[in-house]
Computed example of a mutant assay.
Amino acid sequence: MLRWGIAATGGIARTVGHVIAAEPDMMVTAVGSRSLDRARALATELGARNAYGSYAELVRDPDVDVVYVATPQSHHLEVAELAIAAGKAVLCEKPLAATLADAEKMVALAREAGVFLMEAMWMRFNPLIRRLQRMVASGEFGRVRSISASFGFPVPERDHRLWNPALGGGALLDLGIYPLGLAQLLLGVPEVMTVTGAMENGVDAEAGILLSYRDGARALLDTSLISPLAGTAQVTGTRMRADLDAPFFATDRMVVTGPDGERREFVLDPGETGYVGEIREVRDRLAEGATESPVMPLDDSLAMMRLLEDARSRVIDPTGAAA
């Protein structure tokens, strides 16, 4: 049994915790939080025998093999650093950290200690996204020429963590990482990035991004905390086009159109979510003795943090000043 400790008790901790608990060869053995009462409540819900009122206690639990870091990104480095120092494998929610400097420190610590670390970018483990990636890699799709993707929705409650600069708020880190992540997965690092957008409440409230590549390929991406975006994606190659239903990063339906107009529909099997894929990836890589994932390499996580930090620096506030 692969034994997991859950760091934090919010919605994503609960969701992934239930996915772990449902796997026949995994179990949640402990939950940690700054609130012991919340840790006990989630531990009871997930069938975990131990609950702790601090993350330091959680990582010291001898019955924990892997720590899933589900705190706001402002606390990712803090918790991951404790877990790595304790020799625990780490699955850390996306984005890997709140800043590039934090992400670089986290990766350096894990590599120096020889401890497994992976960003929980569940989009990369969605079976339909993986199918699309294989089609592109095999040449079946042709050369990718354009990508369009969006993800955003209004968040009217200004006390929500997404509007809180101290918690790593803003559209880009939490939502924009998905459109950017799709472009990164299929096209790599761009030659040029153009960003338009606006600040509100001290965070990036919205951003439109154009990525341009050396071979002329491009990606048009959109994210927002103030507008209801479509959440779909379209990938166009020289031989095929793929349309991904919303939300594209967790899509359950993809339609591929070939050069003759023939349409093929791919539908996700029930239960085969990206969450399942990412926790099984941790299991499989640990069984091999690996310290990184080839599906979600740490160098890709660092490259994404560079893009996010660059994009955030280009969003302007209403007076025209840089963010």
Rank of each mutant, 00 (worst) to 15 (best):
L225A: 04
D222A: 15
A80P: 07
S35R: 08
R314D: 12
R158M: 07
A89K: 06
G261N: 07
R111V: 00
V276Y: 04
G114A: 07
G176E: 13
V19C: 11
L109D: 13
R253V: 04
T273E: 01
L302Q: 06
A137K: 11
V203H: 10
A39I: 02
F141M: 14
L132M: 01
R34Y: 07
M123T: 01
A219Q: 05
L82M: 15
H75M: 14
A98E: 01
L100T: 12
A149N: 12
F249H: 12
P179E: 10
G139H: 13
R158I: 12
A233Q: 09
Y55M: 14
M240N: 07
R34Q: 13
E140H: 03
D299N: 06
R158F: 03
R40F: 00
G142R: 04
Q234I: 15
S227M: 05
V16Y: 10
N201G: 15
H76T: 13
M135C: 03
A113S: 09
V28P: 00
L187N: 01
E200I: 02
R158Q: 12
T238P: 07
A323Y: 08
V282N: 05
D300H: 12
L77I: 04
G142I: 09
A311G: 15
A8P: 02
E278G: 01
I6S: 08
P297H: 05
G170V: 00
K88D: 08
A39T: 01
A137H: 05
E200C: 07
D299A: 15
G5M: 12
N50Y: 11
S33E: 09
A21G: 09
F151G: 03
G202C: 02
L185I: 00
R145E: 15
A207G: 08
I209M: 02
L46S: 02
R130N: 01
R40S: 00
F125E: 01
E281V: 05
A311I: 07
A80S: 14
V295Q: 04
L187D: 02
L109S: 10
P294M: 09
L268K: 13
L91V: 07
A287D: 13
L58K: 11
